[in-house]
Design a protein around this nucleic acid. Structure first.
Lengths: 330, 330
DNA sequence: CTGTTAGCGCATTCAA
DNA sequence: TTGAATGCGCTAACAG
C-alpha cells in the first residue's frame, strides 16, 4: 500500500551510482559529474521516483511543515485566510497542515497535540481560543491571529477591533441613528468581545441606550437573536452585527417580517466576507482583509524561520459603505 | 527546531525498560506487565512524549494519511464537504491531507505528486478535472466525486446532475415560464456540463428557445453573464444558474437594475450552499447534500482500506423550494 | 512478558 | 567527485 513506490536505492541501482549520489543531485547538495547527473535524472524519470518527505524529515531533523489551527474549513471568513496562506506558502519550502478546532477548546488542544506530533516547525493560530499556558513548553514559534497571546516565542497579529467597532457605531450615529443594537456572541474569541466594547463605548459617549443580544456567529444565531432583539426593542432603527454571517441571519428575519433594509432598519456587519458584496442589499460592513492577513502572517513566518524577529505591518479595518445603511432624520 | 522533542528512547530510559516495550504499551501491540505499563505511562506523561508519525509511518510502512484534492479552501461548496470528511475521519486512524488545485490542471497534477510523495494510502478527488490517464500507475485507490473516472482501483460518486437540472427546468416550466435562460460555465467539470444538458433537454422537449450564457461559477461571473443575458434576451422571465454563487451574482445585477426577484424575474441556483437559505429572497435551488456526500465518501474509503469493495449509496438531488421563483400566467 | 536486532527511506558524515 | 557507513525515531521479528 505504501511499500511499492521506488526508493532512492532503486534509483541508484538503475543509474549505476550510490544512493548518496542520487541524494546529492536531487538536493544539489554537492557537485556531481555531468554523466552521473544525467543517469540519475533518467532513472528518476523512468521510475517515477518521488522522495519520501517522511524519510527526509527524519533524516534532516526537520519537517518543513507549519501547523495551522482554524475553527472550521467551511468558515466563510477563515476559509479565505487559509487559502491565502496556502498560496503564499507555495513559494517557500514549507507546507501547511491545517486542522480544524471546531470552536472547541478540547478539539483545539487535540489539534495542537496532533501538530506537535507531526513536528511542525511553527504554529499558526487562526481564531482559536487557546490560552497562553497551552503554549508553555512548545519549543516552536507561534503566530496567532485574532487573539493576543503571551509567550517567549509567541507573536500575535491583532487588529484593532474595538476601534473599528467604535467607528462603525459612530458611522451609524452620524447617519442619524439613535436606537442602535448590537448582536454579539459568547462564542468566539477576544475579537468579538472587543467589537462589543467598541460599540458600547460609542453608545455611552453618545449617551444612548446599549442594546445587546447574543447569537452564535452563524446565520441561524443571527436570525434568532434578531427575533429576540425586536421583541425586546421594537423601535430599533439600526443593527450592528458582530460578523457578516450574523448580519445575514438578521437580514433574513427582517425579510420574513416584511421589514425593509435599509428603509426601515439599517444593517451593518463585520468581516466583509466575499458574499457580503453580493448580499441584497449589498452589506455595509467592516473589512478584514483576508489576503493581507495571510500575507502578513506568512511574511512574519518567513522571518521567524530565518531566525529574524517577525514584523507585523499595520493592517487597517476599514468601513466598506454599501447599501444596507440609510440616513435617517434625527 | 525539531530535534528537541523527547524520543521513545528517552522514555524507555526513564521508565527503565526497552524502547520496544514503550512501543508495545503505547500501541497495545502485546501484553506488558502492570508495573512496566505504569512506569512507561508515567515517563510519557513526565516527558510530554508524543510519538513521531513520520517515524511510525516509515517503520510501519504505511502513512495512515488520505490525500484530498479540492478546488479551493474558500469554496462555499467544497469547504463544507471537506469539513464533513474531516469530521468523519476523526473516528478512524486516518488523517486527511488536503491540497487545493485552484481550478488548474497543472496545480492538480502538482497536488497529486505532493500526495504521492507523502505516501497517502488513498486519494479523494473533489471536483477536480484530472483525467483517468493521470491516475494510471498510482498504486492506490481513488475515490472521485463529481466526475466519472476510469481505472482498476478508481471509483466515482457521481450524482445525476443532468436529471436534476432537467427537473429544475421542468419546475420552472410548470410554473408557467417560457423564456428561461441558463448560466453555465466553461470552467468546472462534467457536472456543470451535465446541468447544461439537462436544461437543454427540458427546453427542447418543450419546444422552447435555448438561451445560454457563460460565467465562471463565481459571483462576479454570474453578474457579468446576467448583464450579457439581459442585453441579448431582454424578455427572459427565469434564470437557472449552474450554481448558487452564479445565482448570487445574477441576483446582484438584477438588484442594481431594479429588477425584482421573483416578481419580475425568477431565479434558481444549484448546490444549496449554506448561504442560499439566507439569501434575499431565499434561493430556490437544487440541494447537493454535503454531509451525505462526505459520509458516503468516507464509508467507501473505510471499506476500501479494509480490502472490501466500496459501495456508494444513492444520493438524490432534490429541489429545495424557497422564495426566488414565482408562478407566472402563461 | 521483554530485550535485542534489524530495517523503513533518506541525508550526511567520513574516507578515499 | 564519490561510495560506505551511520543514524533520524520507531515498529516488528526473533529470541529468550
Amino acid at each position: 500500500m505504501v511499500r511499492n513506490r521506488p526508493t532512492i536505492e532503486e534509483v541508484a541501482r538503475r543509474a549505476g551510482v550510490s544512493p548518496a549520489t542520487v541524494s546529492r543531485v536531487l538536493n544539489g547538495t554537492a557537485r556531481v559529474s555531468r554523466d552521473k547527473v544525467r543517469a540519475v535524472l533518467e532513472a528518476v524519470e523512468a521510475l517515477g521516483y518521488t522522495p519520501s518527505p517522511q524519510a527526509q524529515s527524519l533524516a534532516k531533523g526537520r519537517s518543513y511543515a507549519v501547523g495551522i489551527i482554524l475553527p472550521d474549513f467551511s468558515s466563510a471568513f477563515y476559509g479565505p485566510i487559509l487559502e491565502a496562506i496556502t498560496l503564499e506558502l507555495e513559494s517557500t519550502p514549507f507546507r501547511p497542515i491545517a486542522v480544524p478546532g471546531h470552536w472547541s477548546l478540547v478539539r483545539e488542544l487535540e489539534a495542537l497535540d496532533f501538530l506537535k506530533g507531526h513536528r511542525v516547525e511553527a504554529l499558526l493560530l487562526l481564531g482559536t481560543s487557546l490560552e497562553s499556558s497551552a503554549l508553555k513548553n512548545l519549543n516552536m514559534p507561534v503566530l496567532a491571529f485574532g487573539q493576543p497571546l503571551e509567550g517567549p516565542r509567541v507573536w500575535s497579529l491583532v487588529l484593532d477591533n474595538r476601534q473599528a467597532a467604535y467607528r462603525a457605531t459612530r458611522y451609524l450615529l452620524d447617519k442619524g441613528h439613535r436606537k442602535i443594537a448590537h448582536i454579539s456572541s459568547h462564542r468566539g474569541g477576544m475579537d468579538i468581545r472587543e467589537r462589543l466594547l467598541g460599540y458600547r463605548k460609542a453608545m455611552r459617549e453618545a449617551g444612548l441606550e446599549v442594546r445587546v443580544v447574543y447569537g452564535n456567529l452563524q446565520e441561524d444565531g443571527g436570525y434568532r437573536a434578531t427575533q429576540e432583539l425586536l421583541s425586546r426593542y421594537p423601535d430599533t432603527t439600526a443593527i450592528f452585527a458582530a460578523n457578516d454571517q450574523t448580519a445575514f441571519g438578521a437580514r433574513l428575519y427582517l425579510f420574513k417580517q416584511g421589514v425593509r433594509v435599509p428603509e426601515d432598519i439599517s444593517l451593518m456587519g463585520f468581516d466583509d466576507i466575499p458574499l457580503a458584496a453580493y448580499h441584497i442589499p449589498p452589506l455595509t460592513t467592516v473589512r478584514q482583509p483576508a489576503g493581507e492577513v495571510g500575507h502578513a502572517l506568512i511574511e512574519a513566518l518567513k522571518n521567524l524561520l530565518e531566525g529574524k524577529e517577525p514584523q507585523f505591518p499595520f493592517i487597517a479595518l476599514d468601513l466598506v459603505e454599501r447599501a444596507s445603511v440609510k440616513e435617517v432624520g434625527t
